[in-house]
């Protein structure tokens, strides 16, 4: 997994609540058997017009959002289907961090599995970020630091966020979670023995 320490980048804003993963990556793109190739299909139905040209009204197609690597999103972002193709598409598009008041649980886990940091901020701070994004005349840059657990801009915005120590460590070091768990093989095998014994005893 790609490590995440501190990232500064251009922001895009999608102030819609309950954006589901069917919107992030529609079903016709789930047939691929690779982890790559999903970036161009991100937000497909919203992003393109019927003739395949970019939809100028869509938030990510705004000039100031060009090259964005940080997404400001509405509450309950990533709800619905468990498809990991959603963070694959977001990551391939270039997003390294997503800031929202809340995330759907499965999507949240899928992001951290792919080196994308889901940053939860209170509604008041999200409102302020959306305001600053709107007011910016050009691209609006933010810095997300997983080392200091802060989000800052160059004009005095600063907010803290939390992420559990396990996931933070994994992201900071870009660790392979499976490799980490396989080191606990002894514990897993002990659990299997314990459980088998218990079930056998109850069956007597």
């Amino acid at each position: 997994m790609r490590a995440f320490t501190t990232h500064t980048g251009v922001t895009a804003a999608l102030p819609r609540v309950n954006v589901d993963t069917d919107q992030i990556i529609p079903k016709q793109f789930l047939k691929r058997v690779e982890r790559t190739g999903f970036g161009p299909a991100l937000f497909f139905d919203w992003r393109y017009q019927a003739d395949g040209s970019p939809n100028p009204g869509f938030e990510l197609n705004q000039p100031k959002a060009a090259g964005a690597s940080i997404l400001l999103a509405g509450a309950n972002f990533g709800c619905g289907s468990s498809r990991e193709h959603a963070p694959w598409a977001l990551g391939e598009y270039g997003f390294r961090a997503i800031l929202a008041e809340s995330f759907a649980d499965i999507f949240d886990a899928n992001c951290t599995q792919n080196g994308i940091v889901p940053v939860r901020l209170p509604a008041s701070q999200m409102t302020e970020l959306f305001r600053r994004y709107e007011l910016a005349e050009g691209p609006y840059e933010l810095t997300v630091s997983l080392e200091t657990l802060t989000v800052t801009d160059r004009a005095g915005f600063s907010a803290g966020f939390t992420l559990d120590a396990y996931r933070r460590d994994s992201l900071l070091a870009g660790l392979d979670e499976i490799g980490r768990t396989l080191q606990l093989d002894g514990k897993i095998a002990a659990y299997e023995r314990r459980r088998a014994t218990l079930l056998a005893r109850q069956a007597e």
């Binding site: 982890r35 468990s82 498809r83 990991e84 963070p87 499965i106 886990a109 899928n110 599995q113 792919n114 396990y166 979670e177 499976i178 768990t181 396989l182 093989d185 897993i188 299997e192």
Partner: peptide, 16 residues
């Protein structure tokens, strides 16, 4: 669960 977790369960029969 997501696909990374599917892989984790295949390999370890556990999930975080």
């Amino acid at each position: 669960i997501g696909t990374s977790e599917v892989e984790h369960v295949l390999a370890t029969q556990t999930v975080r």
